[in-house]
Amino acid sequence: MTLLDTLTADMKTAMKAKDKATLSVIRMLKASVSNEQIKLGHDLSNEEEVAVLSRELKQRVEERDSYQAGDRPELAAAIDEQMDVVKRYMPAQMSEEEVEAIVKETVASVGATQKSDMGKVMGALMPKVKGKADGKLVNDLVQKYLN
């Protein structure tokens, strides 16, 4: 079952439950996935679907952070609810320990020893953790091991 099929089924469920908040997020996700399909001209692969979901989640994180910085907790809470809906469709996230183990392994395998090797490490590492780990966490751990 593709992501679009899942979203359509969940959209129907949200309509029947009269869950307007979830319904609006699902509609937005469905539109984003459809737009990406049209842009690329083919059905999306799992990696492409995860990229769309990651992009949508990242937008919400940035939006929530701006609301928190602007002292608007009620709007930030609404964005948190939207993020929870988006996370349902994301692959399971790796724990910090799992990411740290992959970072150690990758740093060793590319022979990185200093901060100037950051690009080499990130280039080898990101395909392994894309969509499964927060990019900021990965970046912080790589910097930790390159000091």
Rank of each mutant, 00 (worst) to 15 (best):
T2W: 10
T2N: 12
T8F: 05
A9H: 13
A14M: 04
M15K: 05
K20S: 10
T22D: 12
T22I: 00
V25C: 08
I26T: 06
I26F: 15
M28L: 13
A31Y: 09
S32E: 14
S34Y: 07
Q37C: 08
I38G: 14
K39Q: 14
K39C: 06
H42K: 09
E47K: 06
E48Q: 08
V50R: 02
V52T: 08
L53P: 05
R55E: 04
R55V: 02
L57E: 05
K58S: 09
K58H: 14
V61W: 13
V61S: 11
S66K: 08
Y67D: 10
A69E: 11
A69H: 06
P73S: 12
L75M: 14
E81C: 01
V85P: 01
V85W: 14
V86N: 02
K87N: 09
K87T: 09
Y89L: 05
M90R: 07
M90V: 03
M94F: 07
M94R: 08
E96P: 07
E97I: 05
E98P: 10
E98Y: 02
E100H: 08
A101F: 02
V103S: 12
V103N: 15
K104D: 13
K104E: 14
V107H: 08
V107D: 11
S109H: 09
V110K: 12
G111L: 07
A112G: 13
A112K: 04
Q114L: 10
S116V: 07
K120W: 02
M122F: 03
G123L: 05
L125G: 13
M126E: 12
M126L: 13
V129A: 06
V129T: 10
K130P: 04
G131I: 06
A133V: 06
D134G: 12
D134H: 01
G135Y: 10
L137N: 02
L137G: 03
V138Q: 09
V138D: 15
V138T: 06
N139S: 14
L141W: 04
L141T: 02
L141F: 01
V142I: 03
V142S: 08
Q143H: 03
K144S: 03
L146M: 11
